[in-house]
């Protein structure tokens, strides 16, 4: 029995990756939930919006690298974020102007907007692939590790190492700042409150003199920022491929639905619920268990509930369970 090593292995292989992935999902789900709350449809173009924003970040990263601009040990991509947010905002505002606004004025059914967003998805997907291609892009520079496994072992003398990648730290800090800023904005500012009011009761918001066009525009700008940040953090941590970003749609939708579509707090909680479930279910527990149980009981098999190929099945199961038993989400008191 070696509880300390078990704990370190657990932190290293489950808690840290899940927290980092959860933060990425949470930021992404915040965008989906905001758009749902204000514009009242599920945006199927979201994954490709994230891909577009990340692509712009990559292009600026390359530009800065070629100019020799660096903020080492932080990744150059962070410096590129604001530029990408501006460009992605412009894209989303433009899309709203030429595409979504028409259906909003018509008060089209949400499902029509979902289909329209699938059209937008095609356009964005094409755009991304035309500009940057379909290949994998790795754009993480800066410090590789905050704590490396080797150092950790040397300091503590434990058999198990605990590594914190630079990108993990960047993810956690950036996500935390993003979420705090967003919640401060929604709770404390006049515009933020008007967005909540609009999401809560559109007709009454209009009666109160809240300008719907402005609310919608602000929503798209915030959504752009969230898409860029979520996409970039994910890309830094793993890597960038347009195709992967499309498939992030499922865990992100699951996160937003788990928290109750339209609820920002719920989206954050949902992101972590989905990420932790995914990793707990697909992690091979053999190592951790071997440390905990007496040696003779050590398992032969990997002790893995599902192979990592099926990680989407986890998001999906959570989604289904929530839809069946808590259609308003875990954190929404019935409205």
């Amino acid at each position: 029995m070696d509880l300390l090593n078990a704990l370190v292995a657990f932190l290293n292989f489950v808690v840290i990756p899940a927290a980092s992935y959860g933060a990425q999902l949470a930021v992404g789900a915040l965008g989906v939930t905001l758009i749902f709350g204000i514009l009242r449809f599920s945006n199927f173009a979201w994954g490709d919006t994230m891909a577009f924003g990340t692509m712009v970040v990559i292009l600026f990263t390359w530009l800065f690298q070629s100019l020799g601009i660096s903020i080492a040990p932080l990744p150059t991509a962070l410096l590129a974020l604001p530029f990408s947010i501006v460009i992605t905002s412009a894209l989303l505002l433009g899309t709203d102007r030429v595409v979504y606004r028409f259906y909003r004025k018509q008060k089209a059914k949400p499902i029509i907007l979902v289909i329209v967003s699938a059209g937008v998805m095609f356009v964005m997907n094409g755009l991304v692939r035309i500009v940057i291609g379909t290949e994998e892009q790795n754009f993480a520079d800066g410090g590789r590790f905050l704590i490396s496994a080797g150092d950790f072992k040397a300091w503590t003398g434990l058999a198990e190492g605990l590594a914190i990648k630079g990108t993990t730290a960047v993810t956690m800090v950036t996500a935390l700042l993003t979420m705090s800023a967003l919640f401060w904005f929604l709770q404390k500012t006049r515009t933020g409150k008007s967005m909540r009011a609009f999401s809560d009761n559109e007709d009454l918001a209009l009666l109160s003199g809240i300008n719907p066009d402005r609310v919608v525009q602000v929503t798209w700008v915030i959504a752009a920022a969230l898409a860029v940040i979520a996409g970039t953090l994910y890309g830094l941590d793993k890597s960038f491929r347009p195709f992967i970003y499309f498939s992030l749609l499922l865990p992100i939708f699951a996160s937003a639905v788990v928290g109750g579509l339209g609820s920002p707090m719920g989206a954050v909680a949902g992101g972590f619920v989905v990420a932790f479930s995914e990793i707990v279910v697909t992690y091979a527990w053999k190592k951790v268990i071997t440390y905990i149980v007496p040696q003779t009981w050590a398992p032969d098999s990997l002790m893995q509930l599902l192979s990592t190929d099926y990680k989407f099945a986890v998001s999906f199961s959570i989604l289904i369970i929530v839809l069946l038993f808590m259609p308003n989400g875990l954190f929404n008191k019935g409205k």
């Binding site: 449809f41 599920s42 499902i111 499922l250 639905v257 099926y310 989604l319 839809l323």
Partner: peptide, 22 residues
């Protein structure tokens, strides 16, 4: 998923397809 909101059907079917392909 039938009988839930329309876009929930869209999301749920997206998921089941992903699982079948996996």
């Amino acid at each position: 998923a039938l009988g839930l909101r329309e876009d929930y059907l869209a999301i749920a079917t997206l998921g089941i397809a992903e699982i079948v392909i996996t």
